[in-house]
Amino acid sequence: MNILLFCCCFFAKGQQRNTPWKWNEFVIGADMSYVNELEDAGGVYKMNGRKEDPFTIIKSIGVNTVRVRLWHTPAWKKQLNSNGKMYSDLFDVEKTIRRAKQAGMAVNLDLHYSDTWADPAHQSTPAAWASLSFEALKDSVYQYTFSVLEYFKARNLVPEMIQIGNETNSGMLWPIGKTEDAAGWQRYAALVNSGMKAVKDFSATTTIKPQIILHVAQLQHVDFWLENLIKNGVVDFDIIGLSHYYPWSNYTTMKSIGSKIDSLQTAYHKKVMIMETAFPFTNANADTHTNILTLNNQLENRYEATENGQAAYIADLFKTVKQNKGSGVMYWEPAWISSPMKDLWGTGSAWENAAWFDFNGNLLKGIRFFKK
C-alpha cells in the first residue's frame, strides 16, 4: 500500500468517515505565524503549480486549526525588515486570526509573554514589565491576557484555544518565574493561575470560551513539570500541550509515543495534544540559512528524509495520537519556506526542508493525506 492510499484509508475507511475532522473532534493544526512576514518578503505558495492563499491551501487538505504566536512588543523585528514593521505583535496576529477564520478554521493563540522567542532555554520578561515586582507582574499577566482577548472579541476573532506560555519547562517571565527552586515553582504557578483566571473571567462574557493549554517541550519532561504545577495549585486548565521533535525526544518509536499519550490522560484526566512537531522531506538546503532539523539515518527503520518519508511519519504520528485518545496534533511552521526574510540567525529559512511546500513553493503531494 503506498503512502497516499494508506493515509486516506486511515482517515476515511479506518474511521468510517467521509468528511474532514472538526477541530473539537480532533485537531489537525498548522502553526502559520510566519506567513504574513514571509509573503511581505516575497514568499509565494502554490498548489498544483498555481499561486494560492496558503490558508486556503491548508484548509483544502484537511487542516482545521491555525496556531499563531503573540509576542508582547517585538520591536527588534523592525530592525530586520526593510519595511520597518513588527511581526507576531497584536496587529500581525489579528491579521493571521482573521485569515484563519475566513478560511473556516479554528485558532490556537500562543501567548509567549515575552518580546521574543520563549522556549525551555529562554523566557525573557517583556521590556515593559522588566522592573515590576512579583505582585505587579501577576496583575500584568492577568490584565494583558484579558485585554488581548477583549481586543479580539471586539473584532469577532476570539480564539478557540489559548496557550498560557510557550514551552515553559522551567517557568516563564524570568527571573521571577524561573523554576530554580521551590519558591520559583510557586511564583511560576501563580503567574500561570493569573493568566488562566483572565481566560476564565473573559469566557464568562463570550460565546466562544477558549480552551486553556499549558505547554511543555518533549514528552520526557512532562511528568516532573506537571506534578510541580499541580502541587502548586495549577489545576484549572483543559489541555496538556506537548512539543515532540524526534532529535530531542527520549520517545523514539510510535509505540512509545502512543503509550505516553495514553498514560498522561489516565494520570491527569486532561486532554493531551501535540502542539509542535515536524519532519524533513529532504536534508537539502534552499538557501544559506542552516537547517535546524535533519535526518541522516532512517528513523525507526522506516522514516527517512524524503517526501514519502515525511508523509509516512506525519500520518503515523496522527494515527498514533488519535488511537491513544489524544486530542490532536499541530505541525510547527509548515509554511516557513525560503525567501529573503531575515531572522536573528540568517536570511531565508532554517526550516524549509521540513515545510509542507517544496523549494519552489508548491504543496508537496504527500501532504494531501489530510483530506479524508
Rank of each mutant, 00 (worst) to 15 (best):
residue 160 E to D: 15
residue 235 V to W: 00
residue 232 N to T: 01
residue 366 G to N: 08
residue 123 Q to I: 01
residue 133 S to M: 13
residue 286 A to Y: 07
residue 356 W to N: 00
residue 21 W to C: 05
residue 226 L to S: 07
residue 294 T to G: 13
residue 80 L to K: 14
residue 362 N to F: 06
residue 159 P to I: 05
residue 296 N to F: 09
residue 101 K to C: 11
residue 19 T to Y: 08
residue 264 L to I: 09
residue 152 F to S: 02
residue 267 A to Q: 14
residue 104 G to W: 06
residue 102 Q to H: 08
residue 100 A to D: 10
residue 40 D to W: 02
residue 104 G to F: 03
residue 81 N to H: 14
residue 142 Y to I: 07
residue 202 F to W: 04
residue 208 I to K: 14
residue 36 N to T: 15
residue 243 S to R: 06
residue 325 K to T: 13
residue 298 Q to W: 02
residue 27 V to M: 13
residue 114 S to G: 11
residue 341 M to V: 14
residue 335 A to Y: 01
residue 334 P to K: 05
residue 201 D to C: 14
residue 114 S to W: 08
residue 316 D to H: 14
residue 184 G to P: 08
residue 105 M to P: 00
residue 354 A to C: 15
residue 129 W to M: 10
residue 258 G to R: 02
residue 10 F to E: 11
residue 89 D to L: 03
residue 243 S to E: 08
residue 149 L to E: 04
residue 9 C to E: 09
residue 361 G to N: 04
residue 299 L to N: 07
residue 298 Q to Y: 06
residue 139 D to L: 12
residue 172 M to I: 12
residue 358 D to I: 11
residue 117 W to P: 01
residue 150 E to R: 11
residue 110 D to E: 05
residue 16 Q to K: 15
residue 45 Y to E: 04
residue 208 I to Y: 12
residue 59 K to H: 15
residue 158 V to C: 10
residue 141 V to E: 05
residue 40 D to E: 14
residue 67 R to W: 00
residue 349 S to D: 11
residue 242 L to G: 02
residue 173 L to M: 06
residue 34 Y to S: 03
residue 13 K to V: 15
residue 323 Q to C: 12
residue 226 L to K: 11
residue 66 V to E: 02
residue 240 I to H: 03
residue 16 Q to V: 13
residue 5 L to Y: 06
residue 286 A to E: 10
residue 97 I to L: 07
